[in-house]
Amino acid sequence: MSCQTGIVASSRLAAYLASTSHHSDRCIQITIEDEELQLIQNRIAASTYEADWDRNVMVCIEDSEPCYIFYRLDDKVKVTKETKGLFKRKKPDSTSSQYPYNDCDGVFYYVFMCYVPNDTSVKNKMLYAATRATLRRIFGDNRISTEYMGTVPEELSLQGYKNHVLSAGSNAPMTEAEKELAQVKKDEAAMRSQMSTNSATLPGLNLPATQDLLNNLEKFKKGFVNYLQIKLDTDKEELKLWDCGNIQGSELSEKIPQDEPRYHLFNFNHDFEGEKIWKVVFIYSCPGYSVPVKQRMMYSSTKSCFLDSLAKMDIEIAAKREISEGEEVKEVDVYEMIHPQKHASRAHFIKPKAPSKGGRRLIRNNN
């Protein structure tokens, strides 16, 4: 039974692990000596694992001597039909990497600790680190519930073990930006789970819409009003009408709020190539990062569904735009949204003529 470091289990350790006698032991100490894994001591359980911990583990530790410690907990491994074969006893041989057991009900979970003090030699540090996986396989991976490494005795005490378990189950420290992103994801999941489909909704829209908004969308579609402003109520999680009426293109910029996001629908009446036409533009206004993250997220994630719903209601959108302030949608801007200016094609590059070589010259031979 060899590994990358060439460390093997001694005959005494192999026989000990192959037997069932160690099932009653609370603490097992193993070290590396003469390129073999040697059993140093085994201590019998007297009480609960917490009561036995410090008086068994701490006596195994010497300040400058590294070692491995297996400490038996009070919880037993759950054996199923699929895993029962792993615990059938068989005679160990030189090729086996594990020593199973015939007493399924007596197989306990263990904590596997590797104590390597800071002042030990570099060779020992490398040797114990490289041999951990081998010893784990020899002992039985399926019986180890927790594995950790300590460099000072306090880390292997009962309190040190509890601190390790607590830190392993806690969240990693996050920056403010990471916390904000995590909150956004949490809010988004909550928003989706709380969406109701029982109230009146726009076709295909995830959020409920008030009946007042639905009625005014019909009026907008039929041309009774040419402007609608829609607000997303983040508390009630619904879309509702905030403003409506008939306005001129020059008045649109004045309708854009400076402190909250909004959706805007404007049916723009204008002349184009000698013909008076009507075209609907959709504008999503959001003042910027002064708006709460949840509010920005809800408006952004609902926008595409809202546009899909308008299309199903036969409200054709000629142009869409996102802005942060009203100055970005003056009447000329709305016109250019609908009718983008065609850029003049670039003039083709004309290759210049080659320089003149002058008149033809005759070379005469005077001879």
Rank of each mutant, 00 (worst) to 15 (best):
263 Y>G: 03
256 I>R: 02
229 Q>S: 10
246 N>I: 00
268 F>W: 11
285 S>P: 02
202 L>R: 04
282 F>S: 12
214 L>H: 12
260 E>Q: 13
246 N>C: 00
217 L>M: 01
262 R>N: 07
305 C>T: 09
232 L>V: 05
231 K>P: 05
241 L>V: 01
219 K>W: 00
200 A>G: 12
264 H>L: 14
300 S>I: 08
200 A>P: 14
214 L>V: 10
207 L>E: 04
240 K>R: 09
224 F>D: 10
238 E>I: 12
227 Y>R: 01
284 Y>W: 11
219 K>C: 09
257 P>M: 10
265 L>I: 08
198 N>A: 15
249 G>F: 09
291 V>C: 06
234 T>D: 04
225 V>I: 11
231 K>G: 08
237 E>R: 12
296 R>K: 11
223 G>S: 08
240 K>L: 05
301 S>T: 15
306 F>D: 02
214 L>Y: 03
255 K>H: 09
297 M>W: 08
294 K>P: 12
294 K>L: 11
241 L>T: 00
192 R>A: 08
300 S>N: 08
296 R>F: 11
226 N>A: 01
277 I>N: 08
209 A>I: 10
237 E>P: 04
273 E>P: 09
198 N>Q: 15
223 G>E: 02
227 Y>N: 04
225 V>E: 00
250 S>Q: 07
279 K>P: 06
236 K>G: 10
277 I>T: 13
306 F>N: 02
286 C>F: 03
209 A>R: 13
246 N>M: 00
301 S>M: 14
291 V>E: 05
274 G>Q: 07
239 L>C: 13
270 H>T: 15
293 V>D: 10
236 K>T: 10
265 L>N: 03
228 L>V: 12
247 I>Y: 02
216 N>D: 03
199 S>G: 15
